[in-house]
Write a protein that binds this DNA or RNA. Structure first.
Lengths: 135, 135
DNA sequence: ATAGCTGCAAATGCTTTGCAAGGCC
DNA sequence: GGCCTTGCAAAGCATTTGCAGCTAT
């Protein structure tokens, strides 16, 4: 369900989420939302940009990814200190983490499930649930 | 099973794990292994030490906690970038994370369970499974 | 013209490292 | 005495921030 990838229109994605479609943002959106699920770091995006002849800066990549995350276009995933991943897969899912490669991979939907949810602390509601299987 | 807390002997703990029982290490062990489960940051330990009239330094706290973690006396837990927790509870368990307080709390044993484990990537074995429920 | 974006460089926050001095067997 | 530990300060990373110049409307 991922092999038949169809890039989405960056302008539409940004417009739909109230983000002004500037040159850099469209360029990064094009890199990320190509129809394939990805887990990227800031460094990855900088490299991808370089390989695509996109001229930008570290600060702008941070700005853009943070903004995308805030708008719900990306999900932040932290599995190790000092390294933030941004996940383009927004569906409810979990991850394998390959420690030796420092790489994330989606756990296929439906192959992992919580049998029971504990009673929540008083006055709290679930904001998210994250399962990471280190392999 | 946590309310009836009995501090363990720091010397024994360290000896059993092949760590030389120096003054600082024993002091920090005494702070951490008092029989109550804890999730501490380096900063926490520095504060605890200060309140206990223990003189030490940031570097030594890092050294000590890292060493304890390497020896399996503590478990590293990362839920947010830029802040590492050390968990004194070594049993198989999971966490609530209170985002507003940046605080971890154990999920009571048996109240959460994985119904199914996905097939692992080829040639891999599970090193650990972590479930974090953000509340 | 003007509001917002970009990108450099400086700053921040956590963590690690280098190294001299000190402590312990 | 000799090896390990301690702790200060400096270095190292990832990330954020300040701000001047630029861009697009």
């Amino acid at each position: 369900m991922d092999s038949a990838a169809s890039p989405l229109d960056p302008n539409q994605i940004l417009a739909k989420n109230g983000i002004r479609p500037t040159k850099i943002r469209k360029a990064i959106a094009r890199l990320l939302f190509d129809g394939h699920d990805k887990h990227v770091t800031v460094e990855n995006v900088i490299d991808m940009a370089r390989n695509s002849e996109i001229k930008t800066s570290v600060a702008s990549v941070y700005n853009t990814l943070n903004q995308f995350a805030a708008a719900g276009l990306l999900r932040r995933v932290v599995v190790e200190q000092g390294r933030t991943f941004f996940d383009t897969n927004l569906s409810d899912h979990h991850h394998f983490y390959f420690e030796d490669e420092q790489r994330l991979e989606d756990i296929p939907d439906g192959t992992i499930k919580l049998q029971s949810i504990p009673k929540l602390p008083y006055g709290r509601r679930i904001k998210s649930i994250g399962v990471t299987i280190r392999v």
